[in-house]
């Protein structure tokens, strides 16, 4: 006789879980409490089946009598299991289905955890869910924007460098030191009036000291081949702090170079091409080099040298033309 062990699965649902759904969905409460009773009945009848099996045959005068009595009892027990199960199935149809529309599916049930105050799991879960949704959304936007962004000035060079180096890994934060050195020294050779010294004061991240003619000095802090931040100072200003280290923090004493620092930071955000960080560095350096005539070029819009005491500190990202900060668009 087949023993339907799977009946024990139904009673495995805890009362708490079922209660939770009741409160959530607002199902037939009457049927529900009957169903709970039915579950209890089913459990005890199943228990009786196994009890009688465990106890074995009871002492009777004849062996035949023993077997008969055992089989009869076993059949009785199974029938009551069957009855209880049928009853439970009937009731469960009345109870209605647990909510499936909950956006978090079963994890939504966490909200009914009575120890909520001690372990705010549910609110944290919601928060995490929201964040991960947002992150995905923004990452999608950013990636489509970045892909549109092409560096027109360097567009002709992209093809060439892409051919030479078939693929730059997306994890460009772990480029080998030697590769970074090569890229920087190649850029340095492109511009004779611009000297680029490379330092690694703290581990593998490079810091560049760019000296542009006798006009300015720029400190460029790199992370692998990405430019992290930059600060521009006058040619005759200190680039080292008192302890002899490169001073990557203090701003220039001169307003004109403070302004150029601001614009250089804007340029860092403008020149972005995550797949080809070396093109970005080269574009930035080309842009920075246009400051070689910082004090010699009048504004392309108003034609004057000074406005509010400052020379044209802005350089157009595309044409490299000089403008006063207030004269650009």
């Amino acid at each position: 006789m087949p023993l339907r062990i799977d009946v024990t699965c139904a009673p495995a649902l805890t009362v708490g879980e079922i209660m939770a759904d009741v409160m959530n969905v607002g199902v037939n409460l009457e049927a529900f409490s009957q169903a709970i009773n039915a579950i209890q009945a089913l459990r005890s009848s199943v228990t009786r089946v196994f009890d009688s099996l465990k106890d074995g045959m009871k002492n009777k005068e004849t062996l035949e009598g023993r077997e008969k009595a055992f089989i009869a009892e076993f059949q009785d027990n199974l029938q009551s299991v069957n009855r209880d199960l049928t009853e439970l199935e009937r009731l469960s149809n009345l109870v209605g289905r647990p909510s499936e529309s909950h956006p978090l599916h079963n994890s939504g049930l966490l909200s009914l955890d009575p120890v909520q105050d001690k372990t705010p799991l549910y609110s944290q879960l919601l928060q995490a869910y929201k964040w991960s949704n947002k992150l995905q959304y923004h990452a999608g936007l950013a990636s489509s924007l970045l892909n549109q962004q092409s560096l027109k000035r360097s567009a002709n060079q992209i093809g060439a460098s892409a051919k030479r180096r078939p693929k730059v890994q997306p994890s460009t934060l772990v480029l080998p030191i030697q590769y970074v050195d090569d890229v920087i020294s190649r850029i340095g050779r492109m511009f004779p009036d611009m000297s680029i010294e490379l330092f690694r004061p703290n581990g593998t991240s490079a810091v560049l000291l760019v000296t542009l003619g006798k006009v300015l000095k720029a400190i460029v802090v790199m992370r692998s081949l990405f430019i992290d931040r930059t600060i521009v100072r006058g040619y005759h200003e200190n680039v080292h702090s008192e302890d002899g280290k490169l001073d990557i923090w203090s701003k220039s004493n001169y307003q004109v170079f403070q302004k150029v620092t601001d614009h250089a930071t804007t340029a860092l955000l403008h020149y972005q091409l995550p797949q080809m960080p070396d093109v970005v560095v080269r574009s930035f350096m080309t842009w920075l080099r246009s400051y070689i005539k910082l004090f010699q070029t009048p504004c392309q819009r108003c034609g004057k040298f000074l406005q509010d005491g400052l020379p044209p500190t802005w350089r157009d990202f595309r044409t490299l033309e000089a403008f006063h900060d207030t004269c650009r668009q």
């Binding site: 004109v256 910082l294 010699q296």
Partner: peptide, 13 residues
């Protein structure tokens, strides 16, 4: 003009 060190560069300014 404190920001520049080359007279020929900043004279017009």
């Amino acid at each position: 003009y404190c920001a520049c060190v080359v007279p020929g560069d900043c004279w017009n300014l």
